[in-house]
């Protein structure tokens, strides 16, 4: 077993050595942001938020979360062209994340259900979700005003 690592420079987290398995190639980049090489960083097992961190820009990182943790009825519907672009086969279910907009107060945290990130076999795509109820800014903690951070 090889233990090769990649050095990731991060303005948020300092210099990190990350395993190759954490690297995700985005052939089309993130929508409007570009970038083709990112790494998935989790600070701990079962962390609510993980980071999608650029390997090329030390300042570029987005928090992600598992959408079903907050939105139990969440669904992803892909247009045929998009599924084809990803080369998705029915047998290989991709891992699904949504980007998180963090804020000062938890009530203002939101997730983008319209453009989830699908990762499969080290390749990632930010796709447009065709499901009807998929807002760009869905509150993560609506109705839960008092929370210990």
């Amino acid at each position: 077993m090889t233990t090769q690592t990649i050095t990731l420079e991060s303005t948020r987290f300092g210099t990190l050595e990350i395993p190759h398995e954490a690297v995700v190639e985005f052939p089309n980049g993130l929508i409007g942001l570009g970038g083709h090489r990112y790494a998935l960083l989790a600070r701990e097992e079962e962390a609510t938020f993980i980071w999608l961190h650029s390997l090329d820009d030390p300042d570029l990182a987005l928090p992600l979360t598992n959408p079903w943790r907050f939105f139990t009825s969440f669904e992803v519907e892909l247009a045929d062209e998009e599924a084809e672009r990803m080369g998705i086969e029915d047998s290989a279910e991709p891992t699904v994340y949504v980007t998180v907009r963090a804020a000062e107060s938890l009530e203002d945290f939101s997730a983008n259900l319209r453009a989830p990130i699908l990762i499969s076999h080290g390749q990632g795509y930010q796709v447009i979700n065709q499901a009807p109820d998929a807002p760009v800014r869905a509150p993560l903690f609506a109705g839960s005003a008092e929370v210990a951070a």
Partner: peptide, 30 residues
């Protein structure tokens, strides 16, 4: 992409990328 959707997603990605390194840990369940 339809441009207005592309623009909205770009804005969300940019907003997400401004998130602070410190994110809350003890979260309420919805």
């Amino acid at each position: 992409y339809r441009e207005e959707l592309w623009r909205a997603v770009k804005a969300e990605n940019e907003a997400a990328a401004k998130s602070d390194a410190k994110l809350p840990k003890n979260l309420p369940l919805k």
